[in-house]
Amino acid sequence: MWALLYKLASPKTFYQWSRPLMYGFALLTIVFLTIGIFSGLFLAPADYQQGDAFRIIYIHVPSAFMSLFVYAIMSFCALLIVVWKFKMADVVIKAAAPLGASFTLLALVTGSIWGKPMWGTWWIWDARLTSELILLFLYVGVMALQTSLKNKPRSEVIVAIMVLIGFVDIPIVHYSVSWWNTLHQGATILKFAKPSISSNMLYPLLIMLMAFISYFVTMMLYRTRTEILWRERKSTWIKNVLGDL
């Protein structure tokens, strides 16, 4: 089993099997996004408290979830680098960081736009908002570190250590709404027992979440393939691949 995993994770085989997978996820993204946006904007009923403004949730919550999820993936890869010296994990961190930063920025901006009509302010220094902003700085910091470490040997270990230090922020973001009772509302979906949201509002949200996840996977595969192309540019199999084009 380990032999198979190693084979699948080698740059050459990855480059081969990731191509159809990428197109599959791209298709999924389009399908989920179309259904999700249509049902979120037009089919879901307006919230009895927030009116139609709550429809921002279909962008805000998936991107906030992804901002944490992507950092968790990066931390897992950092662990793979530090403990098992796994080569491909560095490529994944490099591909994931800008995507994570985009999701975090999106969560902050849509939250701000949502906050204006609901709370009467674009921004407050609430625990959830502040820790999410810190997450954005973490992503930017990791990206800056990667850029300035370019071409240095064993730079992946340094990036991995930085990613792992920053992981402290993830539980803080996640639990901030329950630790500090502030303006930001509590969790509505990730309560497994009984989500405090009605089902015809929930389904578009779950579909949008699937859309964001497929988008992330598609972009990850795309960026990873580019990165492999660059790192393996001197190997013979790349020349064969390019010969087919």
Partner: peptide
């Protein structure tokens, strides 16, 4: 959207802009 149109459409617009920009930059790279 009962008066909330500006906020809702702005959010969806920005979402598309950011997600689209990512695709655009990745392709360029």
């Amino acid at each position: 959207m009962n008066g909330y149109g500006v906020y809702v459409w702005a959010s969806y617009g920005i979402a598309f802009a950011i997600l689209g920009l990512n695709v655009f930059l990745a392709r360029g790279y």
